[in-house]
Design a protein around this nucleic acid. Structure first.
Length: 420
RNA sequence: GGCCCAUUCGUCUAGUGGCCUAGGACACCGCCCUCUCACGGCGGCGGCACGGGUUCGAAUCCCGUAUGGGCCUCCA
């Protein structure tokens, strides 16, 4: 991976690394994390930490310590000099260039795209080592592949045209060739490279929006790969077990945020209630929330089936933690006053008891539940959309519920009723 | 401009010459369930880019066209 100056780990790069990981883990191989750095600044060190943290959060690991391209600068220089001595490269204004063949073709059997060949005449004599002694990417990368004993290079297909150069360099070096698999990149809905303006693009952003790691991994794996066309929900273990390069598609995939939301909802609903509650709590804490833990846990069952992202919780259930400002035009003084009376008279203040009281209220007023409940819902939750009303009232408690009902009732004016 | 790659419902895909009057999922629409929303259930809409071949037979093979993408840096 290339370190990004902002420290953000782009989701497209994550997906490519995920394919490497799935492939390696599924065949008992090793998976290395190499940073293709061009400098050794502090920013690089920080962005590497960021990359590692994001990867670990997602559930992706790697073997051994993270390595850096620049660590092999001396070895690269030695190899370049050797190539000059052997006539495979030559000096050019302080730099060292590789001598490309004049005729024939250079090709390989790509594990994703099939046979690819480039006419050698298309290949420029690439710079191996710059005038200042630093190796270029196209030299350092194959040298590292060779030194690390890489058997499979799985990378974005923007590297396709670099591959013949690297193959030729590897051959000149006397190295064995790895298998190359070029996976198509991920696009945004407009067919352009996925970027900020399409929505979240970094792992941190998805995390902050309330997506859970297994869902994100599942979704990413299905972007350009499918085991059979039927199965969609798969755990990391199943992914590892079923992943094959043969089933990676050769054409680019579009990132579908709606499908990610659906999938995240599936994962969220599958969690056991206590797991869900703890995830929700941990998520809110990460956001800097100080909402009462016990109440968050108590609210968990009211929202688990209703929200697809943890990030929806504050808007959806925030009324349980702070006061609300209902829209007066959606209120009805008569109904609210009656509701307050009914609530006040409930013997056991439970969802069931509240339901019974409110249903009785509907009968008395000659209203259907959906008609009578809307003003109540708005008065108590501040919104027309909310968790179940009875459960919400119970959690809020009798006193607070009455307080909100009465205050909202006052908002409707002295005349009392003005339902629209 | 040159070279390389890609092209199945709006999206992710299954499909590797007959099982395809092209299957699944998301999205969308309708109905049911229902205190709102959501979940769930049922149903619907919707696709092999186009044109030539090859073959008894093509979404699947070949050629061309179109469209999209990538690379052409002493960037990675």
């Amino acid at each position: 991976m290339a370190p990004s100056p902002t420290g953000f780990l782009h989701i497209g790069g994550v997906r490519t690394f995920l394919f490497n990981w799935l492939f390696a883990r599924g065949r008992g191989g090793e998976c290395l994390l190499r940073i293709e750095n061009t400098d050794t600044s502090r920013e690089v060190a920080e962005s590497v930490e960021q990359i590692e943290r994001s990867l670990r959060w997602l559930g992706i690991d790697w073997d051994g310590a993270t390595t850096f391209q620049l660590d092999r600068i001396e070895r690269c220089q030695q190899e370049a000099e050797r190539l000059v001595e052997e006539g495979a490269a030559y000096e050019d204004e302080g730099a060292i260039r590789f001598r490309m063949p004049n005729d024939g073709v250079t090709g390989w059997d790509d594990a994703v795209k099939g046979r690819i060949e480039f006419p050698s005449e298309q290949l420029e004599d690439v710079v191996l080592v710059r005038g200042d002694g630093r190796p270029t990417y196209n030299f350092a990368s194959p040298v590292e592949d060779w030194l690390d004993g890489i058997t499979h290079v799985i990378r974005g297909d923007d590297h396709v045209s670099n591959t013949p150069k690297q193959i030729l360099i590897l051959q000149a070096l006397g190295a064995e060739l790895p298998v190359y698999a070029h996976v198509p990149n991920v696009f945004g809905p407009d067919g352009r490279k996925l970027s900020k303006r399409h929505g979240a693009v970094s792992v941190d952003e998805f995390r902050a929006a309330g997506y859970v790691a297994p869902a994100l991994m599942n979704f990413l794996a299905l972007l350009g790969w499918a085991p059979d066309g039927e199965t969609t929900i798969m755990s990391g273990g199943e992914l590892v077990e079923r992943f094959t390069l043969e089933h990676v598609g050769a054409s680019p995939a579009t990132f579908d945020y709606a499908k990610l939301d659906w999938m995240n909802g599936v994962y969220l609903r599958e969690l056991a209630l206590d797991e869900y509650a703890e995830s929700l709590l941990a998520y809110l804490r990460e956001l800097g929330s100080d909402w009462d833990a016990q109440r968050v846990r108590a609210a968990a069952p009211l929202v688990q089936e209703k929200i697809a992202r943890l990030g929806e919780f504050p808007d959806f259930a925030g009324f349980l933690f702070h006061d609300v400002e209902p829209d007066p035009s959606l209120l009805d003084g008569t109904i609210l006053a009656a509701a307050a009376e009914a609530i006040a008279g409930v013997e056991s203040f439970t969802a069931d008891g509240i339901e019974a009281a409110l249903r009785e209220l509907c009968d008395r007023l000659g209203l259907k539940p959906r008609q009578a409940f809307q003003p109540i819902r708005v008065a108590v939750t501040g919104s027309k959309i909310s968790p179940g009303l009875y459960e919400s009232l119970q959690l809020l408690g009798r006193d607070e519920s009455l307080e909100r009902l009465r205050r909202a009732s006052g908002l409707t004016g002295a005349s009392g009723s003005s339902a629209r």
